[in-house]
Amino acid sequence: MQSLKLIAPHLFFFACLFYVFDPTESQNIIYSYCDTGNNYTSGSVFEQNLNLTLTSLASNASLTGFSTTAIGQNPNTVYGLVLCRGDVSQQDCQACASTASIEIIKQCSNNNKEAAISYDNCLLRYSDRRFFSTVDSSPKLMLYNVNNVTEPVVFNRQLGNLLRNLSSNAASSTSKFSAGQTNFLDFQYINAMVQCTRDLAGNNCSNCLQDIIRYIPQCCNGKEGGQVLSLSCNLRFEIYSFFLLSSPPPPSLVQPNSTSQDEKKSTSKVIVFVAIPLAATMVVALIVCCCFFWRNGKKKRVDTDPDQEGSMATLDQWNSYGAIGSSAAG
């Protein structure tokens, strides 16, 4: 009984720690798209090819962060694509792709022949028609931060310049991804990233990004952050750092205090495996659990702290401006 009393604080600490570093937190669905115009029959050859396609995409996603496949013969050919966010680790890419390959069938449960599902870390898509190298820039979802910037004219000018530079970099790179930041006000930055699917040619990637940038005045004008997501490209901007890399790729200035997801995981492992004296453990447990309650309280508010981690796991801090032919799921 005495030994149980001694280890109880440790167990409490580890329970809180597991919640704080829960890896499933980034696996919230941003949107799912199910084309209701065409359906397949359960047990059909198309369904068999679809299952093989999803298995292939989930297996190959983490190799390069991008994979396409076509399985079967017409009229039962299934075309599939998976794209991981350009700054996620192989492990997170694999986890996201595996989850997406399962959830897309659940989300589109009416045997849809064309569907897509998007998470913060990846996008997975399949269809009965060949869509590779074809631009689809129609926004499936647009999101905005509820807070307004203090200097919208300056902000919009700086954001426009940053997105143009990032778009140019992404279009000319093999990764079709670019992230960076620029000055906004004293000690404040605009952070942004853009990405295209890697099957697009450079000019098609550039055109896709230009198309979705034009939607910013509709969804996010004067807002502290926003996202525009289409099947072929997407963008995001914030006044706080949300990059999963230890530092954003150029163009960038000195990045304010940021902690990458990998650093968090490393920290959690160190804390778990290093022996901590009982008194120190209880103090750390108290701090961690205070952070837990503080973080949950923040999620219930609509305001966004500039120092907050930029994960779409906090979708309840965002409002959906619109969804075209899709549904958002949280």
Results as ranks from 00 to 15, higher is better:
residue 1 M to N: 13
residue 1 M to Y: 06
residue 7 I to T: 07
residue 9 P to G: 02
residue 12 F to H: 15
residue 13 F to R: 05
residue 13 F to C: 10
residue 17 L to H: 09
residue 19 Y to A: 09
residue 24 T to E: 12
residue 28 N to L: 09
residue 32 S to G: 14
residue 33 Y to W: 09
residue 33 Y to G: 02
residue 40 Y to H: 01
residue 42 S to H: 12
residue 43 G to Y: 01
residue 45 V to G: 08
residue 45 V to C: 05
residue 46 F to M: 02
residue 46 F to N: 02
residue 46 F to E: 00
residue 48 Q to H: 06
residue 49 N to H: 06
residue 58 A to G: 03
residue 65 G to K: 02
residue 70 A to H: 11
residue 72 G to L: 00
residue 80 G to L: 01
residue 81 L to E: 03
residue 83 L to F: 04
residue 86 G to V: 00
residue 89 S to P: 08
residue 90 Q to M: 09
residue 92 D to P: 10
residue 107 Q to V: 02
residue 109 S to G: 06
residue 109 S to L: 05
residue 109 S to R: 12
residue 112 N to H: 10
residue 112 N to R: 06
residue 113 K to W: 05
residue 115 A to Y: 01
residue 117 I to T: 03
residue 122 C to N: 01
residue 122 C to I: 01
residue 127 S to N: 08
residue 127 S to I: 05
residue 128 D to W: 02
residue 132 F to M: 09
residue 133 S to L: 00
residue 133 S to Y: 04
residue 135 V to E: 07
residue 143 L to E: 06
residue 149 V to Y: 12
residue 150 T to P: 15
residue 152 P to Y: 12
residue 154 V to Q: 15
residue 156 N to E: 14
residue 158 Q to W: 05
residue 165 N to G: 13
residue 166 L to A: 03
residue 166 L to D: 04
residue 169 N to W: 00
residue 171 A to W: 07
residue 172 S to L: 11
residue 182 T to W: 09
residue 185 L to P: 10
residue 187 F to A: 12
residue 191 N to C: 13
residue 191 N to Y: 13
residue 192 A to Q: 04
residue 200 L to G: 01
residue 204 N to S: 15
residue 206 S to N: 13
residue 207 N to D: 12
residue 208 C to D: 07
residue 212 I to V: 06
residue 217 P to C: 01
residue 220 C to W: 04
residue 223 K to D: 08
residue 226 G to F: 06
residue 228 V to C: 03
residue 228 V to G: 02
residue 234 N to W: 11
residue 235 L to M: 10
residue 241 S to C: 13
residue 242 F to H: 07
residue 243 F to T: 14
residue 245 L to V: 06
residue 246 S to W: 09
residue 247 S to W: 05
residue 252 S to R: 09
residue 252 S to T: 04
residue 256 P to C: 07
residue 260 S to N: 05
residue 261 Q to I: 08
residue 262 D to Y: 10
residue 265 K to R: 15
residue 271 I to G: 05
residue 280 A to Q: 12
residue 280 A to N: 10
residue 297 G to S: 15
residue 302 V to Q: 15
residue 305 D to Q: 08
residue 307 D to G: 15
residue 307 D to H: 13
residue 326 S to A: 11
residue 327 S to L: 08
residue 328 A to P: 12
